[in-house]
Design a protein around this nucleic acid. Structure first.
Lengths: 151, 151
DNA sequence: AAATATGCAACCAATTTGGTTACACAAGCG
DNA sequence: CGCTTGTGTAACCAAATTGGTTGCATATTT
């Protein structure tokens, strides 16, 4: 595994669950499917539960289940639940000596925040039902944008 | 510093250079501006040079300079030059036992690749001249997209 | 009570990362 | 020619991140 394995694991699991929303799955089952460890699964899925995407039950017949119909869970929900900002760094706001540098720093931070926001918007267009759906391709339609000249 | 410090450093430096395209800057100067180390600067900027965004000269009056007019360098160029895929993991294509799981895995990978591609498209709309430009706000105009119902 | 499953803390090994030092090489200048 | 300046690169270090693992408490069903 490498970068984004948590997001990958989350999408994989939710996509699987979207196919059988009523079935309760144990972390051990999920770990088998995903080729990882049960504790790791509970770690990642725990954050999704905190975000209200999943519910978990303890005890003998316990396990994990979707908290909502799969058509109501978008990739943005999953991404935000994991709380991993891919492009935008955490705020530092440390005032540098030179105001010019400070302004540039803020501008870079703003740009990255905007890109992050756009990423979330894009993710919100796809649900985990789309992830599960076997036949159809990904509905991420690229918005028409002016093509820049390569040179 | 934390995640994306390389991208942040690159954008910061290029944004600075966009203001004075003819000036040659040493890595020590850049490191001072960015609050980091000269070797780190050369590490990051070296990848930008490999991508043809910067040129560097050794020796007495050496240093770093833009290889192209700043209006021709987009954030996508910078992002791709650094070779850090934010959302898409590297290809593994290891065939799992269960074909259903394998298909799901591929679908998740495809989705993440699509998101990555869309991210690059979004980044290509902004040039480092926009990063430098002091007054204007970030021109990342969000494409009109159908608002999904929150529930 | 026994079995099952989550919740959670603690720890480990591998990887990543920024920082630092050291040194070779190149280019201009006295 | 020798000195200075600056890039290029390797080596190493410390900190942070991360997935994996073990152990144990707790809850729930049988």
């Amino acid at each position: 595994m490498k970068r984004n394995s948590r997001l990958s694991l989350a999408l994989h699991t939710l996509g699987h669950m979207a196919g059988q929303p009523d079935r309760v799955q144990t972390s051990a089952e999920i770990a088998d499917h995903a080729g990882t460890n049960a504790v790791v699964v509970r770690r990642v899925l725990g954050r999704l539960r905190e975000a209200g995407l999943l519910v978990s039950e303890k005890g003998h017949a316990g396990g994990w289940q979707l908290a909502r119909p799969p058509s109501g869970i978008t990739l943005a929900d999953v991404y935000l639940a994991l709380d991993e900002r891919l492009v935008a760094p955490a705020e530092s706001t440390d005032a540098s000596c030179c105001s010019v540098e400070n302004a540039l720093h803020n501008r870079v931070a703003n740009i990255m925040a905007d890109v992050e926001e756009n990423l979330v918007d894009e993710l919100s267009k796809t649900t985990i039902l789309d992830v599960h759906h076997p036949a159809k391709a990904v509905p991420v339609q690229t918005a028409p944008f002016e093509r820049k000249e390569p040179r």
